[in-house]
């Protein structure tokens, strides 16, 4: 009996050694020599694998970084500026830090601002609704409110506000990976510069209808009146198809356009309250929707 056990152990050990030898030689023969810097760069990246850079995960991005001669086009949105500078220095490139960005919702069609014209009872999925019809409000451009952007966010930086029916972006958690921008079938989310001290000014509307039609559908729609364009000293505002757009590279955050907008479609974020020019009582009684931003 015991002899059988011994034979078994011996033969198994022999097999193991044989397999190890074969594996060793095969591994030698087919060895892939990889640039060790890929691993190092991958270690320096945040490891979120979000795809915000346009490459398949952090390793794909690290490979691209190591291979590229000029890395000025490559940017990891999740890393902070210091992180990207460190990687660039590690690879012996000139340090280049892109302006940090953040996702911005360009629709303020809350349930109060935008009346429902019909009731949708199909599958709750924005892409399906967008492929079926104009949507359940008079506005054919705005948010459909089924939260596909929220589902696409891998950083838990978005949620649906049950009162307004619109998604809310958590500025502290958003890394500007752009997943929500791709997910939204109505293209209402945009990546914009984070701005100095997180201050931002943008037109919170994407409605391209004529002023009257847009205003009828939603009380805070951009009606393309061009008032903001006229008042802007930096030519940062362009109006195309009845819709104003503020170029964040040209905008100097002077805030002249904000009070000019007759429908309150231009939003300002994280600014201190303006110095009061009018009597205090009046400005107190006026409740500005600009404070109640959705970003």
């Amino acid at each position: 009996m015991s002899i059988i056990v011994i034979y078994t152990i011996i033969s198994l050990c022999a097999l193991g050694v044989l397999a190890a030898l074969i594996l060793y030689f095969v591994a030698q023969k087919f060895m892939v020599i990889e640039d060790p810097r890929i691993d190092e760069v991958e270690g320096m990246l945040p490891g979120a694998n979000c795809g915000g850079c346009g490459f398949p995960g952090c390793r794909g991005f690290a490979e691209a970084m190591v291979k590229a001669d000029d890395i000025s086009d490559l940017n990891c949105p999740v890393s902070d500026a210091d992180g990207m500078v460190a990687i660039a220095a590690h690879l012996g490139h000139e340090a280049s830090a892109a302006d940090p960005k953040i996702a911005v919702l360009r629709c303020n069609g809350t349930c109060d601002n935008r009346a429902k014209t019909n009731h949708y009872d199909g599958a709750p999925n924005c892409t399906i609704v967008a492929s079926l019809y104009v949507g359940d409000t008079g506005c054919t451009y705005g948010c459909l409110g089924h939260g596909e952007c929220v589902d696409s966010c891998k950083f838990d930086a978005m949620y649906m506000d049950p009162i307004t029916g619109l998604p809310v972006i958590d500025a502290d958690k958003c890394v500007a990976c752009g997943a929500c921008v791709k997910a939204c079938p109505k293209n209402i989310i945009e990546l914009r510069n984070k701005g100095k001290k997180d201050r931002r000014i943008f037109v919170s509307c994407v409605n391209k209808d004529k002023g009257g039609v847009a205003k009828k559908a939603c009380s805070v729609a951009c009606i393309g009146c061009m008032k903001c364009q006229k008042v802007c000293p930096f030519e940062a505002i362009t109006i195309e198809n009845n819709l104003a757009y503020i170029d964040f590279n040209k905008c100097k955050l002077c805030r002249k356009c904000v009070p000019e907008c007759p429908t309150d479609a231009i939003h300002e974020l994280n600014f201190p309250p303006k110095k009061v020019a009018a009597p205090i009582i009046e400005s107190l009684t006026k409740e500005t929707p600009k404070e109640n931003n959705h970003n």
Binding site: G122, A123, N125, T127, I128, S131
Partner: peptide, 12 residues
């Protein structure tokens, strides 16, 4: 189940 809704999405 909204089978056709999703199949339409898949066809698109």
């Amino acid at each position: 189940r909204p089978l056709l809704d999703y199949i339409r999405l898949s066809k698109a």
